[in-house]
Design a protein around this nucleic acid. Sequence first.
DNA 1: CCTGTTATTAGTACCTGGTTATAAAAATAA
DNA 2: TTATTTTTATAACCAGGTACTAATAACAGG
Lengths: 186, 186
Amino acid sequence: MAKLKKKERHDALLNILETDPFLTDEELSEKFGVSIQTIRLDRLSLNIPELRERVKSVATNNYEKVRTLGQAEIVGELIDLELNKRAISFLQTDDTMAFQRTRIVKGHYIFAMAESLAMAVVDANVCITGVANMKYRVPVAAGQKLVAKAELTRVRGSEYFVHVIINVNNDQVFRSKFILTALNVG
Amino acid sequence: MAKLKKKERHDALLNILETDPFLTDEELSEKFGVSIQTIRLDRLSLNIPELRERVKSVATNNYEKVRTLGQAEIVGELIDLELNKRAISFLQTDDTMAFQRTRIVKGHYIFAMAESLAMAVVDANVCITGVANMKYRVPVAAGQKLVAKAELTRVRGSEYFVHVIINVNNDQVFRSKFILTALNVG
DNA sequence: CCTGTTATTAGTACCTGGTTATAAAAATAA
DNA sequence: TTATTTTTATAACCAGGTACTAATAACAGG
């Protein structure tokens, strides 16, 4: 690797740590062909924490995320629930849920909130989504607090019709209809 | 906390580290009212790695996951793209995307795949979802390989109509229509 | 050319959260 | 009581740093 100027090295450093935050100062110094001290100075001036802190933050950040997004069966906090009638949930949005460029929250987070609330309101062991129709009325900005309200409107055999609307400050940003099918599972 | 027998302490240790892997030996020794050395012996006999290794493993395990799920702008791999015409993407599903009980893939992963592909096909800087109608025809089991095909069917002003179907082994499991609105953003 | 500034390297002392190994003390079972 | 298990103490060592000081190299301007 050709010798880089300081500025170039800084950019490259940010870049490389973005894709692999698990490199030690020593490994970095070898990659750039400079001394360890130079790397340390770079990190200092760029406010990049040491390896252990980086690893820790990757660990804790994702820990939360995987807990609430991957493992939890409901997206958002369930605030109120009357089975087969209505349910309310709350979701605090943040930058990790948004497109970087526009800071508009990605549709599937909103969809996930609505779908999981629709499922929660149905009094059945297991149910799957059959049909979903939705209308995004207003884009949601990262940081806004979402309140979802679900209402069971109709039951036809094992099919459940659920309306879910999502508000920000009492303004409707999203509305949807789901048809869920209940399954008979142990 | 009352003094526990060795066996009980071992069980409790495994338990506590399951829910919070970020505790140092010192913190653990305080919690259990024993010396640090005892904790170390316990870890040794239970084959529990040291704090830093635990943190690292939490970090690396979830790193991949969040990269492709939280940060990527497209869910699945983009296989083919003709702007304003059609696009194809591929997604390998796994257990982390499914309900634990039924191993059926959660709807919002499928939605996310479809929505992001619909956005990819539209030749616009930024676009947001206005309307989405979808039909889940067959539940997707964890492990199945999804192939999504998007087709731009109509343009009306800044509104783009996109159809997305998703197949498993050439069987349609999902179909949807999106109306996306293109934004003029620098 | 020398000079001043910036960039880099070197070296030291210290820190955290461990490690290994050895020995002694305390608790428990026979 | 004796034997065995469990726990604690002590000391030396390690990785991957921080914080600080000092020396050296690189380069631009007059």
